[in-house]
Every structure is written in structure tokens, then in C-alpha cells.
Nucleic acid binder design. Structure first.
Length: 460
RNA sequence: GGCCCCAUCAUCUAAUGGUUAGGAUUCCAGAUUUUCAUUCUGGCCAUAGGGGUUCGAAUCCCCUUGGGGUCACCA
């Protein structure tokens, strides 16, 4: 059985990069009928908060991811960690170190002055004497002193680290007894039965340390997949400064979960020439062994394109529901279908769509100056009046085509081009020169409102 | 700085050692649309550089350059 996990630290929201790793873990677990676990890494429990976990679950819910089992909080597993620290102490694989912070700092300074790598000098590694008075000990693990550690990574291949270059007897429990990150990660992953660790490649250099813990405790080492980071346009790790990094912000901005997930899964992974992936397809096709080795840049244009695609292909009922979040209530609108059909083709985001709906539904308060200059000519009032008259005389105006017939009649009668009536009419209806087809707009707002808007322009 | 990772169009990516280096997004042009958008068609744009290996290299090896990550009693 494949067991994966997502293990964020509690920042208060779900980061877009975090969502990607969560998605990949989710896909891989689900594809194999395995489990996808959620763990909150709050060993720095001064700032532990369940609100942070809730924020993550909320974001999961929005995009449709679901974790298995209960959420594990590291802050509530302290007793477990202490137990395993003790095991290592008992077996002689870890030891107490009485060095003070000051001594440590001094040592590091000396070493860097000598241009050596700062590392612990193992002074208490085999200490058997009497501990110095009044000092709280930290617990250090006995790391190998020489040789190499090889991480067999499903993305990067075999990565060989020279122990002398990267390791020392690192601290697994602080002076106050709380365990440190690399220790708890290994313990938790092992205890939770995690078989496949899919995480950002910023963790690659931590992996040898975690492997030291696995080995000391006799735990089987999981499969690792270190996926490349998502970068911003400067080629740096994505951070808060790069605009929307909170997943829920994408909801506010009018993106659909389908578009967001589709976008994220294509960063560093592909399946031939395919661009559009439904959740079902992702579940069938995703394999972490196929992930690219290189970092990718986060570019919004493709997200926009995907989002437009998904909006176009969303059923109107669903669209109607989504639009409510953006302040547009259409449930009871009788021309809803015409309206949504017309606008879903031309919206990149739900926010944009909501705005366009309002532009149609709400009578324009003013007429764009440039538009008037360009499209409202001397003969325009006469044409509009003729058209208004034709509308009043027409009967059974319901569909866009009904209105189109009236426009055709007027154009034929006055022997003018479509543009002569189109431009002023568009200004009357929309207040500007762009927008959906006029026949569609009129069908949506109805004859009375159409006449009222024409009147408003004639009187302005 | 030590260690590790990475390198195909601007961007996301494809290419059993043999393709005219393919697709998508962006951009540009044309068509469609009374307008804008959509849609359709077409176009521009890439194997970082240098050495090898090979009949043949984007692909394998080495070097250079560039970029990123990581080096805590943070996670």
C-alpha cells in the first residue's frame, strides 16, 4: 500500500506551492488506492494553532482534495518523540551534549575564521565523566563520521553525499526537551507508515540527516521524490511578494479549482502534448517518477487560459452557483441561460464574468466620451428613434434572433449599414463600444429596458 | 564560501543516440464577429558555451558559465 502525506508548517494559509505538493501526494496515493495523510509540523509550538490547520482543510475542500484519517499535530506527539529519543539514548546511538550556546558559537567562529565548515566537534560524543554543573543538555545523534550517504530519489536519481561535507552529530532534542525538525519528520513518517515522500527539493539536503534517524531507529527508508520548486519571474523561490500565494485568494480572484489544479499538475510534469487534465485523468496518469528535474516558472497567462477554458465548459447551473460568491444572483433571472451562454465564452475569470453580467443588467450611468465621439454621429438619434419605433411595433420579442430581425428591418428600411445602428445602440445599451452581441443584450434586458436605455441616450 | 540540484522557444513542456527539434501559453498577422472578446488559420521564437565519445549528440562524458537550493537548540 502506498501512503503519502502532506506536512506543512502552520503559516495560517495554504501556499500555492504547498497545494502542488499536496496535489501530487494526493494523486499518487489515490491512484494506488493508498492513503493520503495530513500532518501539521508545529514542533515550534509557541505558534501552534488549529486555525492554521483549518485554513488548510478549507483550501483542500475548495479544490476538492481530501486527506485520510485524522490530522496529526506534532505538538501533541511530544511524548512519542521523547520515547524515541530515550531509545536512542539507551542504545548508545544518541548522547547528551553539555556544550553551551556560547561555546558553540565560539567554535563556529573559529572554524569559519579558519575557512572550515562549521560543525560540532564531537566533544561529548564519548563523554563518560561527570556533567558540568547547572547545564541543561541537548541530545545529539551519533552520525556516521565518514563514507557516503546515497539518497535514491525518484526525481533526481541517486544523489550521493559525502558525510564529511554535510553531517555532524546534529541535535535531535533541544535543552528544553523539545525535538527538532529532522528528527520528528523521520519519526512521524515512519510511525505513520509513510511509504512515499513527495516534497519540495529544498528538502533534498535534509534527507541524509533524516536517513541517519531512520537507520538509528531501525525504520525502513521510504521512497523519496524531491520535486523542483516553483519560481517567480526573477527565477527565485515563490514568496508572498509574488502576488497571490494563498490558495484561497484564487477563489476570490475568480479562478476555478479545476483550472488551478490543472495548471499546477503541468508544472514539472506532462503527458505527451496533453494540456487539459480532468481530476479523473490526473488520477489515471500521474506518476511521480515522471516528474521533471528542473524548476519551473509560475506564469499566470497559462492559468488564465485554462481558467477561461474551464469556465466555457462549466454547465450554467454550476456557473450560476459559483457566481453567487462574486455577488451575482441569477437563480431567478428568466433569461439566465442566454446571459450565461453569451458570457462564458468571453470571460477569463469569474470576477470578469460577474463584472460583465453587471454591465448588461445594470443600466449605464454614463456614456463613454470617446465612444460617443466615435460612434454617436449626427444621424444617430434619427436611427435610434426609428429603431425604437420598430421595437414598439414588434410583437413577441423573446430571443436574440427576434431582436435581430427588427434590426435587419430598420437597416433595410433606412438603407444603411449595420454599423450605423450598431454603434449608437451599443452606446445606449452598454455605455461603451464593446460587449456581447446587441441582439443578445436586448433579449436579456427586454424591450422596456431597451427602450428606456435608448431614451436615456437620446436625452443625455 | 562548502555541499547538492538544474540548464530545449519569453513561459510550461515533447523528442528508444538518427524528427524539418513537436505541442501549448504569450505575442504578431489574417479570417469570422455591426464592436470587443471568443473561435479558426497562419507566423515569429529554443537545444547556454567549449571540448570529447560516436558513422551520427538536445540526448552520453568532462570543463566553463549561468541559475536555484541548503548549510540553526527554524521548519
Amino acid at each position: 500500500m502506498i501512503v503519502t502525506r502532506f506536512a506543512p508548517s502552520p503559516t495560517g494559509y495554504l501556499h500555492i506551492g504547498g497545494l502542488r505538493t499536496a496535489l501530487l501526494n494526493y494523486l499518487w496515493a489515490r491512484r494506488n488506492g493508498g492513503k493520503f495523510l495530513l500532518r501539521i509540523e508545529d514542533t515550534d509550538f509557541s505558534r501552534n494553532d488549529e486555525a492554521a490547520a483549518l485554513a488548510i482543510v478549507e483550501a483542500f475542500k475548495w479544490v476538492g482534495l481530501e486527506h485520510d484519517g485524522t490530522i496529526e499535530y506534532q505538538s501533541s506527539r511530544l511524548a512519542i518523540y521523547q520515547e524515541y529519543v530515550q531509545k536512542l539514548l539507551d542504545s548508545g546511538k544518541a548522547y547528551k551534549c553539555y556544550m553551551t550556546r556560547e561555546e558553540l558559537d565560539a567554535l563556529r567562529e573559529e572554524q569559519s575564521a579558519r575557512k572550515e565548515r562549521p560543525k560540532y566537534d564531537n566533544r561529548y560524543r564519548d563523554f563518560t565523566g561527570t556533567p558540568p554543573e547547572g547545564r541543561e543538555a541537548v541530545i545529539r545523534i551519533k552520525a556516521p563520521l565518514e563514507g557516503t550517504i546515497t539518497v535514491h530519489d525518484g526525481v533526481k536519481g541517486d544523489v550521493v553525499f559525502n558525510v564529511a561535507d554535510i553531517l555532524d552529530d546534529f541535535i535531535i532534542a533541544r535543552a528544553d526537551g523539545t525535538p527538532t525538525y529532522n528528527f520528528v519528520v523521520a519519526v512521524d513518517d515512519a510511525l505513520m507508515g509513510v511509504t512515499d515522500v513527495i516534497r519540495g527539493d529544498d528538502h533534498l539536503s535534509n534527507t541524509p540527516k533524516q536517513m541517519v534517524v531512520y537507520e538509528a531507529l531501525g525504520f525502513p527508508i521510504p521512497r523519496f521524490f524531491h520535486v523542483p520548486m516553483i519560481h517567480n519571474h526573477e527565477g527565485k523561490k515563490l514568496s508572498k511578494r509574488d502576488g497571490a500565494t494563498d490558495v484561497m485568494a484564487y477563489k476570490t480572484l475568480g479562478y476555478t479549482p479545476e483550472a488551478l489544479l490543472n495548471f499546477l499538475v503541468r508544472l514539472g510534469w506532462s503527458h505527451g502534448d496533453q494540456e487539459i487534465f480532468s481530476m479523473k485523468e490526473m488520477l489515471e496518469l500521474f506518476d511521480p517518477n515522471d516528474i521533471n528535474r528542473s524548476a519551473s516558472v509560475y506564469n499566470v497567462e497559462k492559468l488564465d487560459w485554462l481558467n477561461a477554458h474551464y469556465i466555457k465548459n462549466t454547465p450554467n447551473d454550476k456557473l450560476c452557483e459559483l457566481l453567487e460568491f462574486h455577488g451575482v444572483m441569477l437563480v431567478s433571472h428568466d433569461k439566465r441561460e442566454i446571459l450565461l451562454d453569451a458570457l462564458k465564452e468571453r470571460s477569463k475569470t469569474l470576477v470578469e464574468m460577474a463584472a460583465q453580467i453587471n454591465e448588461i443588467l445594470v443600466r449605464p450611468e454614463m456614456f463613454d466620451e470617446a465612444a460617443l465621439k466615435k460612434g454617436y454621429k449626427e444621424e444617430s438619434p434619427m436611427i435610434l428613434k426609428t429603431f425604437a419605433e420598430a421595437l414598439r411595433n414588434a410583437s413577441e420579442l423573446h430571443l436574440p434572433s427576434d431582436y435581430h430581425h427588427v434590426m435587419e428591418e430598420v437597416v433595410a428600411k433606412l438603407e444603411i449599414g449595420f454599423g450605423k445602428i450598431g454603434q449608437p445602440l451599443r452606446i445606449a445599451l452598454m455605455g461603451k463600444l464593446s460587449g456581447p452581441g446587441l441582439d443578445t443584450v436586448m433579449a436579456i434586458i427586454g424591450v422596456d429596458e431597451t427602450l428606456a436605455r435608448i431614451e436615456a441616450l437620446l436625452n443625455h
